[in-house]
Amino acid sequence: MERRFASHPNEVKQFDTERLRKEFHIPVIFAPDELKLVLTHEDRMIVGGANPVKEEVALTTDLKELGVTYFLERRELGIINVGGKGSVVVDGTEYEVDFKECLYVGQGSKDVVFKSADASKPAKFYLNSAPAHQSYPTTKTTLADSESGAMGGLENSNERTIHRFIHTNGVQSAQLVMGMTQLKPGSMWNTMPAHTHPRRMEAYFYFDLPDDSVVFHLMGEPDETRHIVMHNEQAVISPSWSIHSGVGTHNYTFIWSMAGDNKRYDDMDPVSMKELQ
């Protein structure tokens, strides 16, 4: 498991492109028959992926890094499949998780194994894990089950649908909040006008993006913005003090996840367009 440290905004102002990407960009989420994990000290979130192809992939890591005897002893886990049909086995119970379906796994679950239904079209399980103080039931949810809402408009190139999976009014968790935003054809902007939420960090995972397209992910303090170029199936860490927005050369889908002091989706500090620099 790779470790990333938290950064102060005054320090980030001095970063060049290489350093910015090293600290916040996660270029590889999926590798065949491997578990890829990045632990950030921003609210101790873990971002990663499991890509079972010819073999099953178990949720495990260097437990000394987490100070526990098994992965979810003091953690919870959110899973969204962005690949072919697959399943997740949690303590002997198997849950089918299809494309763009979500599974929440509660604190105290000891054995978690990822499987693909077809090796020629393997599942790709995107993972977010946050520390947990309470155990909630393992629960599956789908796009149809999610709390969804349309936002934006084509005139501003940001017509999109937001699906909330793990949140206060949906699948219950200790602190993890997780969902998905799908941009419609002709729309490229997300989360603009921008905002921050100093009480919670956030991570974005971009997918459904053609190989010859990119997303320019915007971050930084409102008056000191930076950008990171994102390709398909890559993730980025957003500190609580940073805006998190982006614009693509094509429409796309992204998964957002948060951890911190509360689970209120609407807990954000708006940033006006005039403040951005």
Rank of each mutant, 00 (worst) to 15 (best):
G83L: 14
G84W: 07
G86C: 02
S87F: 06
V89M: 05
V89G: 07
V90R: 07
G92Q: 00
E96T: 02
V97R: 03
D98E: 14
D98A: 14
K100I: 09
K100C: 06
C102E: 04
C102K: 00
C102M: 05
L103A: 00
L103D: 07
Y104F: 15
Q107P: 10
Q107H: 11
Q107K: 14
S109Q: 08
D111N: 01
V113Y: 00
F114R: 02
K115L: 12
A117L: 01
A117T: 07
A117I: 09
D118W: 08
D118G: 10
A119Q: 12
S120L: 13
K121W: 00
K121S: 11
P122S: 13
Y126A: 02
L127S: 08
A130H: 09
A132C: 02
A132F: 06
H133S: 12
H133K: 12
H133F: 08
H133T: 13
S135Y: 13
S135T: 09
Y136F: 04
P137G: 07
T139V: 15
T141H: 07
T141D: 06
T142Y: 15
L143S: 11
A144Q: 02
D145R: 02
S146E: 03
A150P: 10
M151C: 11
G152Y: 13
L154T: 14
E155L: 10
N158W: 05
R160P: 09
T161N: 13
R164N: 00
I166Y: 08
N169H: 00
G170S: 12
Q175F: 07
Q175N: 07
L176D: 05
L176Q: 08
G179Y: 03
